[in-house]
Design a protein around this nucleic acid. Structure first.
Lengths: 184, 184
DNA sequence: ACCTGAACACCGTTCAAGT
DNA sequence: ACCTGAACACCGTTCAAGT
């Protein structure tokens, strides 16, 4: 009596999962408290399908988080080819700051055990992304040599916690510029 | 047709309000997502009474926040008489760190407009409390002179945001000790 | 003036029936 | 194998009736 595992996922099943993920980010950004079932409706799937793919709200939040952070990390390559090194660093960190704001809006899902795992699992790729940007700046002589990516991220984390509490984008930008000036 | 305002609050009304506040802190600490109506039941009041006193969950959260922070500030005087200055500072900052953890658990009520007002309104008394503790340490020669209370709080805020994300009490204690060592 | 608690609305979650 | 959506449970909120 061998169990039967499907060799391929059914096409509609894959489509449904992708649809949910693609509406979820915007839905969470618009309203962090959006009813879970509403996301299913927006994606045009039944409640059962929503729950089979993401048994809890947290599962969906974390999947969205993972997806967005991945696309952030993937964007590094294009940035360093398109912009001067220092601008690439600034743009990327600004995007990360925006993401951190949304992440904060996503609620405390990242404070749970599973959430910390996901957040922690992202640490290495994110640190590597920063390392790539820093190395480009270093080569161009835009920052002082020997800067540690983890240190930079720690500093950024500090800025975000302040920025989230107080004013919005403007302040984030100003403080970020101050921090970058400090790296030079 | 002058409106009639009660000259004195009815005794049972005052009692009810106090009862709600006294159960709320523990209830939130036990489970930040405790159903709002459950707090009414724990306090032994009807849903209507709960809602008249605290129209929204946020109102109750903020009232609890205010109350607890007030008692923290009030405790400074006893601490500086009971403990050596540096110990008083350490104990008080540890308590504040514990409170910050619970505050975090209280959810994002403090991120709203009203929440920021309350948090901001607390800044001055809290900074004064720290200033009192610092001055005592300075007089005893335990810290270097000229330390700014706001700077110390900024540093603490940084520690908490790290501590909340990662490990709990142990790490908070270690990092706090490092920070205090830095003040000396 | 203040209280209680039943009543209603809304959202989370499951599961029987369908393709 | 996967889907839909009705059905049920639970919590938030109001308000008529009581003291």
């Amino acid at each position: 009596m061998a169990a039967h595992y499907p060799l391929t996922t059914r096409a509609d099943a894959r489509r449904n999962r992708e649809r949910i993920l693609s509406v979820a980010y915007q839905a969470f950004a618009d309203d962090p408290d959006v009813p879970f079932t509403t996301i299913g409706k927006l994606a045009g799937v039944g409640a059962g399908t929503l729950y089979r793919n993401f048994p809890t709200r947290e599962d969906l939040v974390l999947a969205v988080y993972r997806q967005e952070l991945q696309s952030m990390v993937d964007s590094v390559h294009d940035l360093v080819t398109e912009y001067p090194p220092l601008d690439a660093l600034r743009v990327w960190l600004l995007r990360l700051a925006d993401f951190a704001r949304v992440k904060h809006g996503l609620g405390e899902a990242l404070q749970t055990a599973a959430g910390k795992d996901v957040a922690h699992e992202a640490d290495t790729p994110v640190a590597e992304a920063v390392a790539v940007l820093l190395r480009a700046c270093e080569k161009a002589g835009d920052v002082r040599p020997g800067l540690d990516a983890a240190d930079v991220l720690l500093l950024m984390g500090f800025l975000w916690s302040r920025a989230a509490g107080d004013a919005g984008e403007q302040q984030t930008r100003r403080v970020l510029d101050m921090a970058i000036a400090g790296l030079q």
